[in-house]
Design a protein around this nucleic acid. Structure first.
Lengths: 235, 235
DNA sequence: GCACGCAACTTGTACGTACATGTTATATTT
DNA sequence: AAATATAACATGTACGTACAAGTTGCGTGC
């Protein structure tokens, strides 16, 4: 008995949510139903559901059940749901460079583990726009590890993180960031269509994922004059 | 029986940590010890300790016990431990305005609930420096509610949040923020000793606390040219 | 038709037991 | 003296039971 029972139940239900078998607003099977189905006790079923609540997949409602909710996303500033909900308006995404194999970025603000540097590197660059106005220039790097078919496929609903979750069962579990207000360099000001030298917000992020071998590195340049970056977190 | 048993145990132990009865690196009483002391079952003791782990006060070590750790602090960018550890250098704090009763800030980026607007408002302004160089200009507002002796007393170890936790048992449980890169206005550039118009990072934060009636509002201006702002979070 | 009560569900709390597994210090053996 | 076994104690998992309390729909009675 290697993987705890509660963990097996938890993983199964989580996967079913990721695959859309249970959708947003659905209720999971009740504790007693899980007991019957899998021959476990309520203690074990509760533990599985408690963990899922802790991970933000469900909310438990006294007297009603376990409601599937949109996962708490704000691990750092780059929300998983994005941007689109952060600004609350119509968002358009333009690929300046589609996912492909590139060099690892020199002097990246965060350290890349040796085993990742040995792997090939996937990179893509996107421009996020609100009503035709470019707001964020976004660069992403990640090691080419355990992501068959990542290059060449479209993202699910245009979302990188949603694709990682649903196609590869990879969840974001943490992040480190650094923030700087800088004068826009020519290349950046051109992309964001602002005056060179006007203030932009640089955000460098190192995401940790449920695969301990896999980190994701992002470098963002934001025009916050029109759209401030929002972030929230609750225990 | 209003407050759950496990909650009473949890609150008691948490208070004892805040009061320094258990210190960083200490082990709390074991589950069985708690059972003996309070006449409860291990299920209840475990639930209390599990919650405390979830809240970041302790780490549970298999075979060893429940270790008191430094509370996970990074709820948002303004760390509770600060700044001092964020920049990892000698930090000096200068009060430009000591805590006193002032007006509520007009057009604050976050909404202030009516019951807080009715109360009087405490405000203070600090300048955080690293090696004589000013890095962050910090303004804080909060309603004058349940904080006897707040005005006029020194902060514990110079820390606002530590004072809230230890003197008033108020914990930060969440935050919302907005970030903007802006050209420094004269008043700000003067305080931060930079050129007027050069980029500064504005961070506006609304903290939620364990007292649902009490929010804390902060407005920061950061010179990120020399010291970037760091932030991290892990599940 | 409407209010009320109740049954049948849900989750929340708390009890008790058992065994697995990690940690450490002590006693025993080599 | 060093290696090994063991006992005592820690947390982790999982079983089973009981009752409290929130939610909902159905049926009864007014």
């Amino acid at each position: 008995m290697e993987i705890p029972l509660y963990r097996q139940i938890q993983d199964m239900l989580t996967r079913q949510i990721q695959q859309g078998i249970y959708r947003l607003g659905d209720y999971l099977p009740s504790e007693n139903e899980l007991c019957r189905r899998f021959g476990i006790t309520r203690t074990t079923a509760r533990k599985a559901l408690d963990e899922m609540q802790r991970n933000g997949f469900i909310e438990r409602r006294h007297g009603k059940g376990s409601l599937v909710v949109e996962r708490r996303k704000s691990l750092g500033l780059l929300n998983v749901k994005g941007f689109s909900e952060a600004v609350g308006q119509q968002v358009e995404t333009i690929f300046l460079h589609r996912p492909g194999k590139r060099e690892w970025l020199k002097n990246f603000p965060f350290t890349v583990p040796g085993n990742e540097l040995c792997m090939e590197c996937i990179h893509f660059e996107r421009l996020r726009c609100v009503g035709k106005k470019p707001i964020i220039l976004e660069n992403n790097w990640l090691p080419a590890i355990g992501l068959p078919g990542f290059i060449g496929s479209e993202f699910i609903d245009g979302s990188f993180f949603k694709t990682l979750s649903q196609r590869y069962q990879i969840e974001i579990i943490g992040s480190e960031q650094e923030l700087r207000a800088l004068p826009a360099q020519p290349k950046i000001s051109e992309a964001l269509m602002i005056i060179t030298g006007s203030p932009v917000l640089e955000i460098s992020i190192r995401f940790s994922t449920s695969n301990p071998e896999l980190h994701i590195y992002s470098l963002l340049y934001c025009n916050t004059a029109t759209n401030p970056i929002g972030n929230s977190y609750f225990l």
